Amino acid sequence: MTSDRTDVLVVGGGPVGLFTAVLLAARGLDVRVWERRTEPPVGSRAIGIHPPSLDAFAAVGLAGAVLAEAVLVRRGVARSRGRTLGTLSFARASTTHPYVATLDQHRTESLLRERLEALAPGALTTGTTVSGLDRHPDHVVASGVGPDGATTTLRASFVVGADGGRSAVRALLGIRTTGRDYPERYLMGDFADPEDPSARTAALVDVGPDGVTESFPLPGGRRRYVALLPADAPTPSGVGDRGTPDPEAAARLAALVRSRTGADPDPASCTMTSTFGVRRRTADRVGVGRVVLVGDAAHEISPIGGQGMNLGWLDAVDLAPLLAGAVASGAAGPWPRYASRRQASARRAARQAEANMATGRPLGPVAAVAREAVLRSALALPTAHGLARLYAMRWA
């Protein structure tokens, strides 16, 4: 029997797991985090932080530090074949944060680590992989393997699986997932921003006939480009996700951006390249006894739209008061209510992502003109602010 105890063990020290731990520590719970990585966070990866997440960050004293480094995107511009179809303002999307903030994921994670350390010194343990969950009516004994190969155990009132789409916690619980893979593949990279200065704080979405190209400003005068790859195109070789650029992929992405939008990013300025496919997965259950899943461990959606990380954060916002109440009362936790709310939000986000993908698929000349007309009309309507609220995740 282990003598080391905690109220909540969070498995996974990425952005969702760290924020879950911050919320719990802010409520006075004793919390630990096991993170399998030993190295500090690297790479820009997920960059969008939506208004509901910023509201949640503000509640734990984190929004100021994030906003001090982030770019505030206050509008989105739809384009096609060199013409502007319309502009979507985020001014009415939130009374507190009328914008979407963009910040490299490694910086967001670092700020979350700093906030957790301030609230719960020593809570984060790196280099530890969960290997077992021995569940009891009133506690869970978690086993892990540390960086030296030694086994460690921890008795927790609750365990939160925030360990991503390939969740070890979910596998240990025997929970299956259902979903589908999509044919779309995307190439993305970060470059020195080549856009006109008037668009330097705008998200740009080009829906030309050859397929969508999106771009988002980043701190330091950089811009993230994401381009749909042609269906018959081979996946660029040597492209990873660890924050390093591949010269061949950078040149290829720059050529796609140039041919579709007219912007001319310099491949030599590229700091990151990555390819990704699209899939949708939903866990059959999000909780078993005193173990519950959050983020991609519970529901994985398309990265298009930048909602996945934010969904995980909002899972944590919903879960934290439930866990705090359960720790205080000794209850096992109201997972059915939590599950129904959060999986409903994930379904809605997934449908939105699917709509975004459909809007960005290649089309023939006639259909492309029709798509432009529909977008131009939708963005000109007085109700367009409703679209801004949708993209800003005010429904979540």
Rank of each mutant, 00 (worst) to 15 (best):
T84A: 05
L72N: 05
T95K: 11
A46Q: 04
T87G: 01
L116F: 12
G28A: 02
S89D: 12
V42C: 00
R92C: 05
R37C: 01
G48W: 00
T87S: 11
A118C: 08
P51G: 14
S44A: 13
R135T: 13
G48A: 15
A120S: 15
A118W: 03
G61Q: 02
P121G: 10
R37F: 02
V100G: 13
L116G: 06
R32A: 15
S44H: 12
E109T: 10
A70K: 14
V73E: 14
E114G: 13
T125I: 10
L124D: 07
V71R: 14
L29Q: 09
T126Y: 02
L112Y: 00
Q105K: 02
I47A: 04
T95I: 05
V60S: 01
E109N: 10
L72F: 03
T96Q: 13
G86T: 07
V66E: 10
A91Q: 13
T108P: 03
H50T: 04
H106W: 15
V66D: 03
L111S: 07
L72D: 03
A68S: 15
H136I: 07
T84Y: 01
E109S: 13
S94Q: 11
R32F: 09
A118N: 05
S80C: 08
L103N: 02
A78D: 01
A70F: 10
A78E: 05
L67F: 12
F57Y: 15
R37W: 00
S53A: 14
A93G: 15
T128G: 06
R81V: 08
L119C: 01
P52T: 08
A123Y: 07
L111Y: 11
H106G: 05
A123M: 05
Q105I: 05
G28R: 10
H106I: 00
L67R: 11
P52C: 11
A65K: 09
T95E: 15
A118M: 06
G82H: 05
A63Q: 09
S94C: 09
R37Q: 09
L62H: 12
R81Y: 08
P40L: 04
A70N: 08
T84C: 03
R37Y: 03
F90D: 03
S110N: 05
V33L: 00
L116R: 01
P40S: 06
A63W: 07
I47H: 06
T96H: 14
L111P: 10
P52F: 11
T126K: 08
A46H: 12
P40M: 04
P41W: 05
R113T: 14
R32N: 06
A63V: 01
G132M: 03
